[in-house]
Each structure stands twice: as C-alpha cells, then as structure tokens.
Amino acid sequence: MTPTLLELEDHLTHLTLAPELGASIVNWTVRSTGQPLLRHSDSQALNTGLPGKLGCYPLAPWSNRISEGGFDCPEGWLALTPNSLTDPLPIHGSAWQQPWRIVSQGRNEAVLELDCTTPFAYRARQRFHLSEGRLSIELQVTHLGEHAAWHGLGLHPYFPRTASTRLQAQARQVWLCDSAKLPTELSPLPAEWDFQQLKDLPHTLVDNGFCEWDGHCLIQQPELGYELECQATGSDYYLLYCPVSLGFFCIEPVSHPVNAHHLPGRPGLRLLEQGQSTALGFSLQYRELG
C-alpha cells in the first residue's frame, strides 16, 4: 500500500516526506527543473516500505551498529536483537522502523513525532523547514523511561553520485574497521580520505566514521549543476559510506562513533534521565552552479 505523503515547498525546492515510513524524506528536488538534491526515490522504492531505499531517515536512539547483543545501562544490561535483514547486528536504532504522527504541517514546515517503547521508552521529534533553498532538519529525543539510558542520534541522507561529485568535510582522524564493520583503531587520515579540501570521492569502498568534525561539509555536483553547503550541530562525527559502482553516497551527521556503547568513555553518547533530551541538527543549502 502506498504510504501517505506530505509535501513542503519554498520558491526554490520541493520536499516530500513519508511519516509512516520512519518519518523519512522521500525526495528533495529543485522546483524549476525537477533535479534531485537527494538520491531520487521512484514509486518502486517507495512501495518497498523501506526507509533505506528513500532519501533520508532518522537514527535514534543510536546510530549504526552495536555489538555484543546489547549494552550496559545504570540499571543493568539492555539486550538488543538484530533489526535488519541486511545486517547481523542491531543497527540505526528503532525510530526509522516506526510510523510517526503528524504534529503540524504548513506550506514550508512540518513537525513529526514518535512515541516508542523499543528498546526503551522515548519520544522523538523531527522538524523539517524549507526557506530560500535551505532544508533544515532538527531531530530531538526525550527519554521517557523510568531508568536512565544511553542515547545517540544521527541522520542518514543519500546523495546522488556522478564521476565528478566532490566533497569537502574536515576531520582529524578516522576509525578503521574489521570485517563486521565495527571500529578497531583510530588512525590519521589516509590521503585518499582527507577531505580538508574539495576532492573526488574514493573509487574503493569507504564505510567508516570520521572524528573531530567541525560540522561543515560541501558537496559539489558539477555534472548536475549545483552544490549543497551543509552544517550540522550536535554532531562531532560523520560516517562516510561510498559503495563501489552505485549512483549514491552517504555522509551522515552523527553524535557518536559506531559501537560507541562499547568504546572507552562511550564517546558522544548521552546518559538521559526521564524527561531529559538531546538534539541534532542538519541544514543543507542548495545553490545553482554557474
């Protein structure tokens, strides 16, 4: 069954949301040309019912993979089970797999909300706003459980990739990974992964977390005629996913490294008591290239 869609617009861009599919963005396009600014989602992608086939979805109450079948909270061990057919580990939290409700909707803004009990009780809220070609996404989570729990946040946008796509995103270190895609050690940036300056995306697989990020990134699409100037808040890390020979890549603003629940000091995670909140923001400014 085709899900209900919400549509927002400003004078430059058009945004389509699917509240029932994890409050995912289906498409974000240029109004005058129809040019996709996120990976294009056609009706077949939408009808899969899978947020991972769409343009962007929220990550809460954690980002990416968690090992060891769960993690410790102050009240004891919180067991987790795998939640994706494509990954053997629990991945990306639970918000992306739940239907969200519409709190409000206007011409250029919508607020969506979710009350969830898995793996513990929390309320998630996303605000989407369009203005002058800028898409702003605010993701907030409030802990509702009686006992404190660790929280992390992220967003998982998919961007078009062509032979000339270029990225600038400053970071100081990167986590190297094992075959399970879990971090093993922090490393200086290899030359091909150093995006201090605008450069082409690597031709080999990248699926790694980058540390000490200033939240800024620039995505240039010369073949497609535009660039996106992006800024994240509440995010000192980004995950870069560049699959080989596919027409997309992902740069994901996240609050913590992969498997942070099992890293020393639990970097980037927040231990929230009942009623406490944490938030992450991401803005993407569209600009036509001359």
Rank of each mutant, 00 (worst) to 15 (best):
R172C: 00
G152W: 12
S84C: 11
E146F: 07
P160T: 10
T162L: 08
R161F: 01
D72H: 10
N108M: 01
H151M: 12
R125P: 00
N83E: 09
H92D: 14
Q173L: 12
V111E: 14
C56N: 13
R123P: 02
S104Y: 01
R101S: 09
G152M: 11
A121V: 00
H92S: 00
S94R: 14
E146Q: 15
G52P: 05
R65Y: 02
S84Y: 09
G52R: 13
A148V: 05
P160Y: 07
I137Y: 05
L112I: 10
L144E: 12
E132V: 09
T81P: 00
L153K: 12
T117I: 12
T142L: 12
T117A: 15
G93R: 12
F128H: 14
A124K: 11
I91K: 03
V174I: 14
Q98D: 04
P88E: 11
P61S: 10
R166P: 06
I137R: 07
F159H: 03
L135P: 03
L80E: 07
S136G: 00
Y158R: 12
S104V: 08
L144P: 01
A149M: 03
H129W: 06
R134P: 00
E146K: 09
G93K: 10
P99S: 13
K53D: 15
L135I: 04
L85F: 08
G93Y: 02
H151E: 02
E146D: 15
P82H: 11
A171Q: 06
N108C: 04
W62E: 05
T162F: 04
Q97V: 04
T142A: 09
I66C: 03
G55A: 08
H129R: 14
L153W: 06
L80Y: 08
S131H: 14
L112M: 11
Q140H: 00
R172V: 01
C116M: 05
R161W: 09
D87R: 04
C56T: 02
R172N: 09
A171T: 09
W62C: 02
A124E: 02
H156P: 02
D87A: 13
S67G: 04
P74I: 01
H156C: 06
W96G: 04
S136E: 13
L167Y: 05
T165G: 03
C73F: 01
D115Y: 03
R166C: 11
G52F: 05
Q140G: 01
A110H: 06
R125I: 09
L135M: 00
L54Y: 07
T165F: 07
D87Q: 12
V174R: 14
L155Y: 03
S131K: 15
N108W: 01
E109W: 00
L54M: 05
L89R: 07
T117L: 15
E68N: 15
P88Q: 11
E146S: 12
N83D: 13
F71R: 04
P58V: 00
H129I: 02
L135G: 01
Q173N: 08
N83T: 07
V141E: 03
G70V: 01
